[in-house]
């Protein structure tokens, strides 16, 4: 069991949840009625992307939605991520929106 602090990027909102061993952060949040963005739930789509501010996670499946540069910058996929330590995460839809900029701008 680990503690995860969820920190909404665009607001003052924070929540702390406990994640049982073997569970993903998305599952643990849903179990206590906290809604986070998600899509495929398999690690392919990146809708649930969050960013590690401290701590560490392990992905249960390969995080196919994330490129090496994303992983190197602390982006994780909450639908397949289990914390290995107490963890602090930036969450919310705007985190996903950082993954790829407008190439023409």
């Amino acid at each position: 069991m680990t503690e995860v602090l969820l920190d909404w990027r665009d607001s003052e909102r924070t929540e702390t949840i406990s994640v049982p061993d073997g569970a993903t952060i998305l599952d643990a949040a849903e179990a206590v009625g906290i809604g986070l963005p998600f899509g495929c739930r398999t690690g392919a789509c990146g809708t649930c992307t969050a960013r590690l501010l401290s701590g560490d996670v392990v992905h249960h499946r390969p995080p196919r939605a994330l490129k090496d540069r994303h992983l190197a910058n602390g982006y994780v996929l909450l639908c397949i991520a289990e914390p290995t330590t107490d963890t602090h995460l930036a969450v919310g839809a705007t985190v996903q929106a950082e993954l790829v900029p407008n190439p023409w701008k």
């Binding site: 789509c45 990146g46 790829v100």
Partner: peptide
């Protein structure tokens, strides 16, 4: 591939 277009459009 879905894993390519799902997260966004990367040139």
């Amino acid at each position: 591939a879905p894993k390519t277009y799902y997260p966004g459009f990367d040139l």
